[in-house]
């Protein structure tokens, strides 16, 4: 198989060439066919051990990785380490030793500090898959978002995407910006100045503060999750004002292209980032995202780990 990844880790979407991304999408296609069958398992990763190491609470991503690994017949160990054990002095070096001691073939890691998966990858002998680090990267989320766009739109070239909300604190936004622009998609960032990074010069994006202007002629509108504590930290005055200025509503979507696709990485704060979702049901790709997530993660695990 020529689609195996050249890097032994998936730390950032920047580790992937466009060919490799397309290879992941092709592989996801075949795994998703599998999930419609009665027997959903393949033996590709039989005998391999994958550790899900989560330093932040997560249901979706962790479950999605777990299902993906199990469908590939890997043994899965879930370790959820609360912040308290970090406070107690468990260091990352201890974590590295734990991974080595478990004899894991791969580790899926989520961590609140940016750069940790990369740091770990330089110190362990197994594959490292980033499941979200701080504000930096969430590569499998971006891959499944791109995959959803590809399935619904059939192409990347020439598309216009608006990413709306808290760009500053969003690893999902960062991974998507990198992956989308790489694929030739035009990206517009939409949000209040307090939630857009002060310097975005290295990204090939347009920054717009007005939502109507931001979604105009868009093929895809991607809303980001707003952490509710942003209001208390004065990034926004109130959730109500945020919802009024940046909430995606049926009225706003009329400014976008008629066949606009709406995405959200979840979990959604309904009534804040997204309003009256039922009324634009046919435009929503949110359930697809969850469904495709398993296929994308199977593809990533397979293409990283089945080769050797």
């Amino acid at each position: 198989m020529s689609d195996f990844l050249t890097s032994s880790h998936l730390l950032s979407v920047e580790d992937l060439t466009t060919d490799e991304m397309n290879g992941i999408f092709r592989t996801a296609d075949s795994f998703l066919d599998l999930s419609s069958r009665t027997v959903k398992k393949v033996p590709s990763l039989r005998g391999k051990t994958l550790v899900n190491l989560f330093y932040e609470p997560s249901t979706r991503t962790r479950t999605s990785f777990e299902i993906a690994a199990k469908r590939l017949s890997a043994d899965v160990i879930n370790i959820t380490t609360s912040q308290s054990s970090v406070v107690k002095g468990e260091s990352l070096l201890d974590t590295v030793r734990t991974i080595e001691a478990l004899g894991a073939d791969g580790v899926v890691i989520r961590h609140p500090s940016s750069g940790v998966p990369e740091w770990i990858s330089r110190r362990v002998g197994c594959h490292v898959i980033n499941a979200g680090d701080g504000l930096r990267e969430h590569p499998t989320q971006a891959l499944l978002d791109l995959y959803t766009i590809l399935k619904r739109k059939g192409r990347f070239e020439g598309l216009q995407v608006a990413i709306v909300g808290d760009i500053l604190h969003s690893r999902v936004a960062r991974s998507n910006i990198r992956a989308l622009t790489r694929m030739g998609v035009r990206v517009r960032l939409v949000g209040p100045p307090t939630l857009i990074p002060q310097d975005t010069k290295g990204w090939n994006v347009e920054v717009v503060h007005d939502l109507k202007e931001g979604v105009r002629d868009c093929d895809v509108v991607m809303a980001l999750r707003l952490q509710l504590e942003r209001a208390t930290a004065s990034f926004i005055p109130s959730l109500k004002e945020y919802a009024r200025l940046y909430g995606i509503s049926p009225g706003i979507l009329r400014i976008a292209k008629p066949d606009v696709l709406v995405l959200h990485p979840g979990p959604i704060n309904r009534g804040i980032e997204i309003q009256d979702e039922e009324s634009f049901h046919s435009h929503s790709g949110i359930l697809d995202q969850v469904h495709f997530g398993v296929g994308i993660r199977m593809a990533v695990l397979y293409l990283l780990m089945a080769g050797q």
């Binding site: 940016s114 750069g115 002060q198």
Partner: peptide
């Protein structure tokens, strides 16, 4: 430092 590199690395900036 708050700037392009902090944006890119996803690290909190000091202006």
């Amino acid at each position: 430092n708050e700037g392009w590199v902090s944006t890119d690395l996803g690290l909190k900036g000091i202006p």
